[in-house]
């Protein structure tokens, strides 16, 4: 973890908590069938950290990410994001909160295929109330930041997987959100692109004062995380399950 530790004079004395989840339970019910996806989740994520949420398939990672993003409402428990309790917010207020504070990155990129790279970023800026030239300019800057200055006019179909994910990262960064929620962002990428994307995310987390929470199966990126949270059977596991490799640098939950 040495390479991630800031000089003593810059170290956080009381690090702010970006995410606080308390007593999270999630039960899905379909007719008579009842499935408990999460049980008793207690989780705190500090600002500007890059944290990984890992676990086997069906362990509840995506459900937890959806709840921590304010997309799903838990059956029980509370979620506090950036100091604001969001579990009681209405759908509309939750949407506004997400728009203002959270950037999303998806496994399948979820770019708008009809829009160019620049327009994909611009569309989110437009949603956030930034219009016309200001939006264009910011979109270009963000794409430049992720190394795609020469691809601004390209449609997603003309980009490689790694480039698409970079556009998605630029889009997630549009409007400078304080949180980035990423769902398997390297799953569709080869090793080289996967690493490049993670490096980029880590750099952005540190430089842009952005907390990144990432669901992943990818053991290749464990060493860049500040912390790894393991989920198993809907519960946080105090240590990595036996079938998971343990990261060299990152601390486990």
């Amino acid at each position: 973890m040495d390479k991630l530790t800031p000089p003593v004079e810059l170290q956080r004395i009381t690090p702010a908590k970006a995410v606080v989840a308390s007593g999270i339970e999630m039960i899905f019910q379909s007719g008579a069938e009842r499935f408990q996806a999460l049980r008793g989740i207690e989780l705190e994520i500090f600002s500007d950290d890059l944290e990984l949420l890992m676990g086997p398939s069906g362990s509840g990672k995506t459900t937890l990410l959806s709840i921590l993003s304010g997309i799903l409402t838990p059956t029980a428990g509370t979620v506090e994001l950036l100091g604001q309790e969001i579990t009681g917010l209405s759908r509309g207020k939750l949407a506004k909160f997400r728009l203002k504070n959270i950037g999303f990155i998806f496994q399948d990129f979820n770019l708008f295929p009809a829009l160019t790279a620049q327009e994909n970023v611009e569309a989110v800026l437009n949603l956030k109330g930034i219009r016309r030239q200001a939006a264009k300019h910011q979109a270009q800057q963000l794409l430049e930041q992720v190394g795609l200055a020469d691809k601004v006019k390209s449609l997603p179909r003309d980009l490689s997987g790694g480039q698409k994910q970079r556009v998605a990262i630029a889009r997630a960064l549009a409007g400078s959100p304080r949180l980035i929620m990423a769902d398997e962002p390297t799953a569709a990428l080869d090793s080289q692109n996967g690493h490049a994307v993670i490096e980029l995310l880590r750099k952005l987390a540190k430089e842009e004062d952005c907390t990144v929470l990432m669901v992943t199966h990818d053991p290749r990126i464990m060493d860049v995380a500040d912390r790894i949270v393991y989920l198993e059977d809907g519960m946080i596991s105090p240590q990595a399950p036996h079938f998971f490799p343990v990261a060299d640098g990152a601390s486990s939950s």
Binding site: A95, F104, P113
Partner: peptide, 16 residues
């Protein structure tokens, strides 16, 4: 649909 879902997830209002 997935694009509209993405917009919704990102916080766009239904009316948008």
């Amino acid at each position: 649909l997935k694009e509209f879902g993405t917009l919704k997830a990102m916080g766009s209002s239904d009316w948008f």
